[in-house]
């Protein structure tokens, strides 16, 4: 097993070396010097940029990130059960294994339903002014 992992690591090192080589060879071939100061500016279709781009971004991104971490950890916990499932079935422990998979999947699914119900899966979240407007439209439509 250690030999196999060492192979993977060696492969990674080779890959990094290849990338470094590709970046290094160009050094001797490409032209040097930069004739225009404008080359240092960020590309904004020839406009002078007003502010740095490190601004506060839409917080929806971070909600997805948190959801991803929770789901990914749960998936990582499912994998061990999934690996032994076949063997346990052969050893007539199938019911136990099936229950484990089922409980995991159901917990995962409840999490998804909760996120869905809180409108956290929608890019444009329904809240505040939007909610009232939308409910008005709905009530008009229904009446």
């Amino acid at each position: 097993m250690i030999f196999k992992l060492a192979t993977a690591l060696t492969f990674g090192v080779f890959a990094v070396l290849f990338v470094l080589l590709a970046l290094w060879i160009g050094k001797f071939l490409r032209p040097k010097g930069r004739p225009f100061a404008e080359k240092d500016y960020p590309y904004e279709c020839a406009e002078r940029p007003l502010m740095p781009a490190w601004f506060n971004y839409n917080p929806r991104f971070y909600i997805y990130a948190i959801a991803f971490i929770i789901f990914d950890i749960e998936v990582a916990f499912i994998f061990p059960v999934a690996v032994v499932y076949k063997k346990w079935l052969e050893a007539h422990l199938g019911g136990l294994a099936f229950m484990e998979i089922a409980i995991f999947s159901i917990i995962l699914f409840i999490g998804l339903v909760y996120l869905w119900g809180k409108h956290d899966l929608e890019w444009i979240r329904v809240m505040g002014l939007w909610t009232s407007k939308r409910s008005e439209v709905k009530s008009h439509g229904q009446s």
């Binding site: 904004e44 601004f55 991803f68």
Partner: peptide
């Protein structure tokens, strides 16, 4: 530190992590 890159990078991050959950579950 360019606005286009910043938006592209954040978009790609949220897209990749959203679909990685589906990918991992398909692997299960």
């Amino acid at each position: 530190n360019s606005k286009y890159s910043m938006i592209g990078g954040l978009r790609v991050a949220s897209q990749l992590i959203s679909y990685e959950v589906a990918l991992a579950l398909a692997f299960v």
